[in-house]
Computed example of a mutant assay.
Amino acid sequence: MLTVDFDRLNVGPAARVIDVGCGAGRHSFEAYRRGADIVAFDRNAADLADVEVMFHAMAEAGEAPEYAKAETVCGDALELPYGDGEFDVVIASEILEHIPLDEQAIAELVRVLKPGGALAVTVPRWLPERICWALSDEYHANEGGHVRIYRADELLDKITARGVRYTHQEFAHALHSPFWWLKCAVGVSDERHPLVQAYHRMLVWDMFSAPALTRVSERLLNPLIGKSVALYFTKPGGGR
């Protein structure tokens, strides 16, 4: 389940990409499939170990081109261990809401991006997130949880202040908003609640089957209750 639209980023052969806060690796795997040289970057070593296993499995199964490169790196988004302008594409999906010093993290994302490169940042959208916070403290008030709720224009201003140019905004995962509202209402940790289980089965079915009904419904609902907002930027200069 991708939040970032890779077609907007021109991710393909020879592109050097870093997925900052990669988590379970969903965006890193897509970059690898498209032939990019991908760095899956995260502070969670256990998650990165699983991502590394998947990279090897993809290579053995021929799911990524032989020339593509994939590596995992453990580190801090506030101090990326790379020089200025090393990456053609920088992805930061659903991480800034976890970071108290978000402006420092944003500065690092922009610093390692090449002139002419593309930056994609996604965060939970204000309205769905506000409802989750109202329904449940457990949803956000935990170690490593969400420390803020962004308005899209607030985040846009923080990012463009670092010298990149805003290009596009879109919303994603509208069908996931009611799922999280339901979880917050019955208890975030109550995975066995029958309504939660039923809705989860629907989401899994939708992800693997992509039926027209749910795909069209989500496209129509995304502008209203999309769970995430994705912002796209380019860095002035360069030839991309």
Rank of each mutant, 00 (worst) to 15 (best):
Met1Gly: 08
Met1Glu: 01
Met1Phe: 02
Asp7Ser: 15
Pro13Trp: 02
Ile18Trp: 03
Ser28His: 09
Glu30Lys: 00
Glu30Ala: 01
Val39Leu: 04
Arg43Asp: 06
Asn44Met: 03
Ala46Glu: 08
Asp47Ala: 08
Val51Arg: 05
Glu52Thr: 11
Met54Gly: 05
Met54Leu: 09
Phe55Lys: 10
Ala57Leu: 11
Met58Trp: 12
Ala59Asn: 02
Pro65Gly: 12
Tyr67Ser: 15
Val73Glu: 03
Val73Met: 15
Gly75Tyr: 05
Gly75Asn: 07
Asp76Ala: 08
Leu80Glu: 02
Tyr82Cys: 07
Phe87Arg: 10
Ile91Met: 15
Ile99Asn: 03
Asp102Lys: 06
Gln104Glu: 14
Ala105Lys: 09
Ile106Phe: 12
Ala107Val: 09
Ala107Leu: 12
Glu108Ser: 14
Arg111Phe: 12
Val112Gln: 13
Leu113Met: 09
Lys114His: 11
Pro115His: 11
Leu119Trp: 01
Ala120Asn: 02
Leu127Tyr: 10
Glu129Ala: 07
Arg130Pro: 03
Ile131Met: 08
Leu135Ala: 13
His140Phe: 12
Ala141Asn: 12
Val147Arg: 13
Ile149Ser: 04
Tyr150Cys: 08
Asp153Pro: 02
Asp153Met: 10
Asp153Leu: 09
Leu156Trp: 08
Lys158Thr: 06
Lys158Tyr: 10
Lys158Gln: 15
Lys158Leu: 15
Ile159Tyr: 01
Ile159Lys: 03
Phe171Tyr: 13
Leu175Tyr: 01
Leu175Met: 05
His176Thr: 03
Ser177Glu: 04
Trp180Gln: 14
Val186Lys: 14
Val186Arg: 11
Val188Gln: 14
Val188His: 05
Arg192Val: 08
Arg192Gln: 05
Pro194Gly: 07
Leu195Trp: 04
Gln197Val: 03
Met202Arg: 06
Met202Thr: 04
Val204Gly: 07
Asp206Thr: 09
Ser209Glu: 09
Ser217Glu: 02
Glu218Asp: 06
Arg219Asn: 10
Leu220Ala: 13
Leu220Arg: 15
Leu221Ser: 06
Asn222Ser: 09
Ser228Lys: 01
Ala230Met: 06
Leu231Gly: 05
Lys235Thr: 03
Pro236Lys: 08
Gly238Val: 12
Gly238Lys: 05
Gly238Thr: 07
Gly239Asn: 07
